[in-house]
Nucleic acid binder design. Sequence first.
DNA 1: TCCGTACTGTGCTCGCGATCACCTACGGTG
DNA 2: CACCGTAGGTGATCGCGAGCACAGTACGGA
Lengths: 230, 230
Amino acid sequence: MEGRLPDPGDALTGVEMFSGLEPDVRQRVIQAAVPRTYRKGQLLFVENDPGESLIVLKRGAVMVFRTAPTGERAVLSVVRPPDTLGEVSLLDGAARSASAEAIEDCQALALSRHAFIELVHANPRILDAVMRSLGALIRRLTEQNADHVFLDLPGRVAKTLVRLAGETNAPMVTIELNQSQLAEMAGGSRQSVNQAIGSFASRGWLRTEGRRIVVTDLSALRRRAGMTDR
Amino acid sequence: MEGRLPDPGDALTGVEMFSGLEPDVRQRVIQAAVPRTYRKGQLLFVENDPGESLIVLKRGAVMVFRTAPTGERAVLSVVRPPDTLGEVSLLDGAARSASAEAIEDCQALALSRHAFIELVHANPRILDAVMRSLGALIRRLTEQNADHVFLDLPGRVAKTLVRLAGETNAPMVTIELNQSQLAEMAGGSRQSVNQAIGSFASRGWLRTEGRRIVVTDLSALRRRAGMTDR
DNA sequence: TCCGTACTGTGCTCGCGATCACCTACGGTG
DNA sequence: CACCGTAGGTGATCGCGAGCACAGTACGGA
């Protein structure tokens, strides 16, 4: 279980949550964290599982979703490095409120609730990062809730694209999800999402390149999603 | 500012979050907390306000909601004692993610973020209650998100009623909201909510008494809302 | 080369639920 | 009393978006 990685000192590089820690604390984190890999399509955890760990994504992408009795999915978010999953179980250790599936091959670190609490004890500053991440989570959930009430489907598709595009100001962003996944994120049918994408494309807001979407006018999408520009 | 209440020792009675504290810690909480009252219709805070305090409800009821540019509202929850509002601002001190309005005359305690952090320092056990409350908040938001995707309007109305009814196993629960407020909670029009209520009533799941709703068959509503009974 | 699979693109129909336009009932106020 | 304002209740119309069906395209494997 130890020395699996070629250079253990690298295990935390690029992980925002543990940046700026003293070398010895850093070392303790590395010892407590269990490296994990997931293949595309693999489930990280399932709704109602006992939630027992925080997962820090280092590479790849994970889809967080809930499942209806019919098998239908509602995707809550797509997580990419340097973000984390499962922070909620740190709060109360209660069951997972959603499922998670790798949509690309992933590399991650898992920290048990127990190990995490000890770490925080040793270095309270780690808490800040988790707190900020939880705050962002609640804000996003709150906003998505309102979006489902206020926005029509094209609006939700636009907003989904904006969220997927992230913070970048780059003139072009490429989205690597298929239309079915987009539909599950926007809360609509695959066909309707297709129509929305088509209408955005005809207005020059984006371009479809085979099975990927290249956003060329992010602020137009923002406006269509009812977001005050910028 | 001090001695305003007839019996200061009573200021914390019935407040779950601060139950089971040692008398001296209890006293410090009372000194740090600012008693507040709100009239029906009064705003406690507005979206994008700087979030600076935790509010512990002692009496009354508060509606938490977001507002669309058109003025339309989406109600996220109705808070009643012994619950709290604005926990999120304790996490990161960032702006409010929703607005809050008293829907009954209210009596509450306000704790500034600063005061709260000091209190936690003195007695870390207070954190547990906040953590649990945050966990519950995230779970509820996650579930509501999925509900907007999976459930039709009558389903969401049913679920709204179930949530408003709370944990009680009592055979009858009275809901004290008008149809417009219910509509804002379920994410639908007032008329459609009226239809749903009517159809529930004709099936004997509830009864309308003037302008209040008396739920008589909670588990039928639960089933209609797609919840695994009990 | 042929087939199986996965994804995109498109037309059609149909039902849910919004919207508009009313009415009734009730309580307060001049 | 007449006059409001507010809330519940109901019908008619209409449009969004789901659902179904199918054509076109890209890709990998036997």
